[in-house]
């Protein structure tokens, strides 16, 4: 499938700021499931550093703007040819040992409710394979947190979302990571895009899901929000320990002022 992406992020500041500095994880890396046909990242007026690959195989670049400004725009556009690999991440060049993804951050730290969810889910599974256990956990998380935009916010932790009993993809992913760790499986946060027009299920085009390391298979994506594995409707941007660590944009405003943020993401599928 060919997916085209138009992703605009616009910052508006109440009073002019001294500039911005950002680390962008906004360029997908090539792997079996995705081939980049063309891609561009543009920040008008800014100095943009060269793309480099980090140890996790993500493409990173630095953007800085050092003039007085009251608006900043980050414009991403591109075209990616995707393939369904049944959620398995193959042909992705990375060098971080999977065991390094056994650690939690404050956002993925489990609480009692998450522990119970894992215990209840796995208790009935006997000697099921790691893959089956991961699928079961994804379904359990899907049921435990009905998809509800607005119920949580950008800094909500897995434990808080669990207490709330509601969430969006970020919360599902944080809880999924916490669950996987409790089950002894390395897990990480993935950010990317999802072309959602076909099945009509409720989510945004900017998306997040978890990857769980399964011996023999490698990293496998689990989208608890949709109770599925990522397929050719997904574009993978990069990974990290949690939403902050895997954020497509991590930035700072120099001489910060009140900002308003406007993000639009449009994904379209083209017939091949």
């Amino acid at each position: 499938m060919i997916l085209t992406v138009l992703h605009k992020t616009r910052y508006e500041f109440a009073t002019p700021v001294g500039g911005i500095i950002q680390s962008l994880r906004l360029t997908p890396a090539r792997c079996e499931g995705q081939k980049i046909v063309n891609w561009s990242v543009d920040v008008p007026g800014a100095v943009i550093g060269e793309l480099f690959s980090d140890g996790a195989g993500d493409h990173i670049q630095t953007v800085s703007l050092r003039n007085l400004t009251s608006t900043v725009e980050v414009n991403v556009s591109g075209k990616v040819e995707t393939r369904d690999t049944a959620g398995v991440l193959r042909g992705h060049r990375e060098r971080v040992p999977p065991r390094a993804y056994m650690r939690n951050t404050p956002r993925t730290e489990p609480n009692r409710a998450i522990r119970e969810l894992v215990e209840d889910t796995l208790a009935v599974m006997g000697t099921a394979s790691a893959l089956d256990r991961a699928h079961a956990l994804a379904s359990a998380v899907h049921k435990a947190l009905p998809y509800t935009p607005g119920a949580t916010h950008a800094h909500t932790t897995a434990a808080e979302a669990m207490n709330e009993g509601l969430g969006v993809c970020q919360d599902h992913t944080h809880v999924m990571i916490a669950c996987a760790h409790l089950a002894g499986l390395p897990a990480r946060y993935v950010s990317g895009y999802l072309n959602a027009t076909e099945d009509g299920s409720p989510h945004e085009a900017s998306h997040a899901w978890a990857e769980i390391y399964i011996d023999g298979l490698g990293w496998v994506g689990f989208d608890a929000s949709n109770e599925s594995c990522p397929n050719d409707h997904y574009i993978r941007l990069g990974s990290g320990l949690d939403a902050q660590d895997a954020a497509p944009i991590r930035g700072l405003v120099l001489g910060g002022a009140e900002e308003s943020l406007d993000v639009t993401v449009v994904i379209e599928a083209q017939q091949q």
């Binding site: 980090d54 996790a56 060098r95 390094a100």
Partner: peptide, 18 residues
């Protein structure tokens, strides 16, 4: 043991492979 290294807080994933 792998976990002693890779699960150590001081092990920085950000520089793995560099």
């Amino acid at each position: 043991p792998a976990d002693l290294v890779y699960r150590n807080e001081a092990y920085e994933i950000a520089v793995a492979g560099f």
